[in-house]
Simulated assay, not measured.
Amino acid sequence: MVTDNTRRTLLKAALFGAATPWLPFGCATTRSPDEPALVGCAISGRDDYRVVVANQWGSLLRQLPLPARGHGVAVESKLGHAVAFARRPGEFLMVFDFHSGEMLKLITAAPNRHFYGHGIYSQDGAWLYATEGERATSRGIIGVYDVANGYQKAAELSGFGIGPHEIIRMTDGTLVVGVGGVHTDGRTPLNLPTMEPSLTYLSPQGELLDQVRLADHHLSIRHLAHDGDQTVLCGQQYRGEPDAYPALLAMHQRGQEMVSLKAQPEQWARFNHYIASIAATDEWILATSPRGNCYGIWSKQSGELVELLPLPDASGVVVKDKQFRVSSGAGSVILQAHPFEKRAVNSNVQWDNHWSAIS
């Protein structure tokens, strides 16, 4: 098995090797190259972790050091604020101004709490919702932070399960949580035979609106996206038999059953039991797998896998200007609006985990 340190060494060699030439991005080039468009966590060296603000091509505009490895980033474009969350089980969240690069606040977890790596702002930007857990039990918590009051914690929402990971917001303000269902000691799972993952819908006040499950309880629901309308996409980490390769992506609309996306078992095997980032347009769904060093594009209408592509340490994906932008731990940035039409550049940033778009 390749260790994390070995993988990072190989990726760094790829990152600072031969540069990929810059390619034109059509209408996307009308934006200023100094305009913040993307933000994500990155690795700069051994135990050197950053959060990076980039332009539309993934070129670094400014960066801030992080106390430890980061994971997801929440963005509030009207305020110019962003929040970097520590990788689970995380000890911090860091608020910063993405225009100036100034750190505004560093919040550390209480002794009996940890962060799960993701968060989202409310529609009006007044509240920050962060996925958290109770250390001894992995009891799921959504921490609610008052933005105007210096990000003071105002409430905790709970009662929906254990091990929440990503949280997103629908267009009507409804919160959707990928509840992994796994009780852990650090990163070691303790309850795989009895884990209970779910896709959970909450009101902004924490009322449980809906909760649905996949047939295979070993599919830990972790990463989420929505299509700008009513469809939620969820990506899973499979915690069952190592030689089984079930579907790792599903889509859902409130009041309906979950629908698994389609691919052949050997194609699912390429994803190495793990989906990281997801994004969707009206027609297409794109999902990455850093463990599988690949990403796939599915037809939203048919649910069929249309294209499966290699990408070293495939990490974040967002939709910006109706096009997918995909990041890589090897520094590549892929721009792709449709299957079989990708363009690539080298950003010289060793991207890590997820991207968020700045509107």
Rank of each mutant, 00 (worst) to 15 (best):
D216Q: 10
A244M: 09
H223M: 09
L248I: 02
G228Y: 13
H223W: 05
A225F: 01
P242W: 04
H226T: 12
P242F: 07
Q237P: 05
A250G: 08
I221P: 00
Q256G: 09
E257N: 13
R239Q: 15
L224E: 10
D243R: 12
H226A: 05
C234F: 14
Y245E: 10
D243I: 02
L249Q: 00
C234I: 12
T231V: 13
D243K: 11
Y245P: 02
L224A: 10
R213A: 06
I221Y: 00
M251S: 10
L214K: 03
Q253F: 02
A250P: 00
R239T: 04
L249P: 00
Q236V: 13
H217W: 02
G228M: 04
Q256F: 13
L233V: 08
E257Q: 15
D243T: 11
D229Y: 12
H252R: 13
R222W: 01
Q256T: 15
A215N: 12
Y245H: 15
H226I: 11
R222E: 06
Y245T: 05
A244S: 15
H226Q: 04
Q211Y: 00
L249K: 02
V232Q: 02
L219S: 07
R254C: 05
V232I: 15
M251G: 04
L224S: 09
Q211C: 09
A225E: 04
G240I: 02
A244V: 15
Y238M: 06
I221K: 01
H226N: 12
L248M: 07
Y245R: 05
G235N: 03
A225T: 08
Q230K: 15
D227M: 08
L249E: 09
A215P: 05
L224T: 07
Q253D: 01
E257T: 15
D227H: 02
L233H: 03
Q237R: 12
R239N: 14
D229W: 04
E241K: 11
Q237L: 08
Y245A: 06
G255A: 14
